[in-house]
C-alpha cells in the first residue's frame, strides 16, 4: 500500500482507467502559484475526480496516502480519507499503525495529530496511545503537537488506569532533561489540573511534596527558568505566600560565600545550590524582590535595590522591565 518513489502515475494504471482526472483550475494571473511535480499533479487530478463522484472505496485510501506522503498538510486529503475509513468501516488499528509511521515522519504537521485524535475518539482505546507518544517524544522531546495530544488524551478519556503512571512518566522526562519546560508543564497538569487521584487526597501534603521536588531540582541547576516558574506556579495555585521560601531562596540570590562548602549541617528542607552552580541566580534575585515588595514598608527599598542590581548587572537585557517595577513600587509607597 505504501507508494514507492518510482511507482507509476495513476494516469498509467489500468485499475484507475474508469476515473476521470480533473486538472486544477488556475487563474491566468495566479498569486503564489506552486510549480507542482508531475507526481503531485497526477495524484491530485485523480483526487479531484474522486471527490467529484463521491467515491469511497479502498483505492481512495491508497490515493489519499499517496497525496499525504507528498504533502502532509493537504487537509482535504486527510478529511476525505477519514470519511472513507468510516464509510468502509475499515479496521482502525491498521490505520493507527500507518499513522505511527507518518506521525514520526511529519511530526510538525497539525493534520497528522488531528487525524489521530479522530481515530482514537472512534476506537476509544487510549491505552496504547500513551506508549506510542512516549516513543515519539524520543524523536523530539519538546514537540508541541505530541505533548498536547497526550494532554488531550488524558483529559478526554480521563480514566484512572490511564493516569496511574503519569507522574512517573513526567519524572522520567525531567530526568533526561531537567530544562525541558514541556515536561515541567506536564507535571503541573498531572498534579494540579487533573482532579484528585487516590493517594493524593491530602492537598497540603501534595503541595509539600511538590515544593520539595522543585527545590531539589533548583539546587541541582539553579539557573533553570522552568523550575522557578514551576515553583511560582505551585505557590500561586495553593495561595502560599512567597515569603515562606525566604530561607530557601536567599543563598541563591548572593554570590557564593567562600566557606559555603564547609557547612556540615545540611538543611534537608532547604537544599543549597550545588557546587559549581553559577551564582547569584537571576531568578532567585527576582523572587526575593517579589517577597520584599509584598512585605511593603521598608522592604520596598530592599526590593528596588535587588531590581537595580538585575537592571545594571545581572540581567541587563531586561533593564527596562526592572526599572518599571521600581517606578511602580515607589509610586505605591507614595500613595
Amino acid at each position: 500500500m505504501t507508494s514507492e518513489p518510482d511507482a507509476p502515475l495513476f494516469a498509467d494504471r489500468p485499475e484507475w482507467e474508469d476515473v476521470v482526472p480533473l486538472p486544477q483550475y488556475e487563474n491566468v494571473d495566479p498569486l503564489a502559484p506552486i510549480f507542482y511535480t508531475d507526481e503531485y499533479k497526477d495524484a491530485t487530478n485523480y483526487f479531484r475526480g474522486i471527490v467529484k463522484t463521491g467515491e469511497m472505496s479502498p483505492r481512495v485510501l491508497e490515493l489519499t496516502e499517496n497525496i499525504i506522503r507528498q504533502n502532509p498538510a493537504h487537509y482535504s486529503a486527510w478529511q476525505y480519507r477519514y470519511k472513507t475509513l468510516m464509510a468502509l468501516k475499515a479496521p482502525l488499528d491498521v490505520e493507527l499503525r500507518l499513522m505511527d509511521e507518518l506521525a514520526v515522519r511529519y511530526l510538525k504537521t497539525y493534520q497528522v495529530w488531528h487525524h489521530r485524535r479522530l481515530l482514537v475518539t472512534e476506537t476509544r482505546e487510549p491505552g496504547p496511545e500513551l506508549e506510542f507518544i512516549t516513543k515519539s517524544l524520543q524523536e523530539d522531546m519538546k514537540n508541541y503537537h505530541t505533548w498536547s495530544y497526550r494532554q488531550w488524551l488524558l483529559a478526554y478519556f480521563n480514566d484512572d488506569a490511564l493516569w496511574s503512571d503519569e507522574l512517573n512518566f513526567a519524572d522520567q522526562m525531567l530526568e533526561s532533561d531537567i530544562r525541558n519546560n514541556s515536561a515541567w508543564h506536564h507535571r503541573f497538569f498531572v498534579v494540579f489540573q487533573s482532579g484528585v487521584r487516590t493517594g493524593d487526597e491530602n492537598r497540603e501534603e501534595v503541595v509539600r511534596r511538590e515544593l520539595a521536588f522543585v527545590k531539589n531540582y533548583i539546587s541541582l541547576a539553579p539557573n533553570n527558568a522552568s523550575a522557578w516558574n514551576y515553583l511560582r506556579g505551585i505557590l500561586d495555585h495553593s495561595a502560599t505566600p512567597y515569603s515562606q521560601l525566604l530561607l530557601f531562596v536567599t543563598p541563591y540570590s548572593v554570590p557564593r560565600s567562600p566557606d559555603a562548602d564547609l557547612v556540615d549541617v545540611i538543611d534537608l528542607e532547604n537544599p543549597p545550590p550545588s557546587m559549581g552552580a553559577q551564582l547569584p541566580c537571576v531568578a532567585a534575585i527576582e523572587f526575593l524582590a517579589d517577597i520584599h515588595e509584598n512585605e511593603g514598608g521598608d522592604d520596598i527599598m530592599k526590593a528596588t535595590e535587588l531590581w537595580r542590581s538585575l537592571a545594571d548587572e545581572h540581567d541587563t537585557i531586561r533593564k527596562k522591565s526592572r526599572e518599571y517595577r521600581i517606578r511602580d513600587a515607589l509610586q505605591k509607597v507614595q500613595v
Binding site: L31, A32, P33, I34, F35, Y36, T37, Y40, Q70, N71, P72, A73, H74, Y75, S76, T109
Partner: peptide, 16 residues
C-alpha cells in the same frame, strides 16, 4: 514568492 513557489513548498497548497 508571489510570482511562484518551487515544488518543494507544496505544503503551502492548503494555506496559499
Amino acid at each position: 514568492c508571489l510570482a511562484g513557489l518551487p515544488a518543494g513548498q507544496v505544503d503551502i497548497d492548503s494555506s496559499r
